[in-house]
Amino acid sequence: MGFKLLSKLLVYLTASIMAIASPLAFSVDSSGEYPTVSEIPVGEVRLYQIADGVWSHIATQSFDGAVYPSNGLIVRDGDELLLIDTAWGAKNTAALLAEIEKQIGLPVTRAVSTHFHDDRVGGVDVLRAAGVATYASPSTRRLAEVEGNEIPTHSLEGLSSSGDAVRFGPVELFYPGAAHSTDNLIVYVPSASVLYGGCAIYELSRTSAGNVADADLAEWPTSIERIQQHYPEAQFVIPGHGLPGGLDLLKHTTNVVKAHTNRSVVE
């Protein structure tokens, strides 16, 4: 069995187990497998329904001669939608809004960016022009300005110390501490036991640490421990890039980060 097929099978099995364990909360999309990078042309966006009122959005972007996937989250909030992270750029984010209108038909009224990198804030200006209120932590807003990236308009308070959590509509926002970046936030959907790890969490097929220019490698494993301790009931975990899975993604990420750190020390 090929690795790609095995990865998709694991996603399907995880979703099936969740649907059985929580039949009222989960209505997993039966329309197909989780979209992969090879299936999404740059400039297009796919939506994948995880649970009743919960979707991931998947886009792709060219970077350094390669094409990478990027995940975000959409959560229903009454007759409105909360968006977590842009679709990595203005063109993708405009396509995301169009796809949401086509498939869901509810307005996106608020959006949260989970850290300051372009795959999370690139497209904020498109959201703002569409009347979406954009939010991020003060740290993310400051770092985005320093980096020359787009800056969300509103500040999220109460997320300055490791372990801080605040309720934001249908989700809980959690600051686990520094990891992929010093400002990275985690998003949890309690009604569906869905954990969105953003770039602080890796997919299972990833074996290298990737972009760690703004990471705190020493603190990252401790931050992941905080996530595990705060959300032990999480059933569906979405990484910032690639295929979702279960809580095993947290341990896998820790292993990859520690291996990278150990290699760096040896070198």
Rank of each mutant, 00 (worst) to 15 (best):
N255K: 11
L173N: 05
A90Q: 12
L143C: 05
V42S: 13
G240N: 05
L82A: 04
T254P: 05
D214Y: 05
I40R: 14
P176R: 02
G177L: 04
P23T: 10
M1E: 02
P35M: 15
V266I: 10
S113E: 03
K102C: 06
Y175C: 03
S205F: 12
A178V: 07
V237G: 02
R141I: 10
V54H: 00
L10H: 12
E225Y: 10
L24S: 13
V124Y: 01
V266Y: 13
L96P: 03
V265G: 12
H260P: 12
R76V: 10
P138Y: 09
Y48V: 15
D125K: 08
V108K: 02
W220C: 05
A129M: 11
V126Q: 05
L106K: 14
A95Q: 12
Y34H: 12
A51I: 07
S70C: 02
F63V: 09
G105K: 10
A215H: 05
I104V: 08
T222H: 14
P244G: 07
S62K: 06
Y34T: 15
E233W: 10
P41N: 12
G210C: 05
I74G: 02
E44T: 11
V42H: 10
L73W: 00
V189E: 02
L127G: 01
S161D: 13
D85V: 01
L249G: 01
A192C: 05
I227T: 08
P244F: 10
L96N: 01
E219H: 11
G2P: 10
A165G: 13
G53M: 08
E101P: 05
G177E: 03
A59L: 05
D29L: 07
E33W: 08
E172C: 03
A90S: 11
V42T: 12
H154E: 12
V212Q: 10
S137H: 09
R120Y: 02
Y68H: 08
N211D: 13
R263K: 13
I58W: 15
A234D: 01
L173R: 03
V11P: 13
H260D: 11
Y196A: 01
I40S: 14
I40G: 15
I100R: 01
V112K: 04
Y48L: 15
R141S: 05
I238R: 00
E99F: 09
V112Y: 04
S16C: 15
G198M: 07
F168S: 04
I40V: 15
I84F: 10
N149D: 08
G197K: 02
H154R: 11
Y196E: 02
L249T: 03
V166E: 08
V11M: 05
R46D: 07
F63M: 14
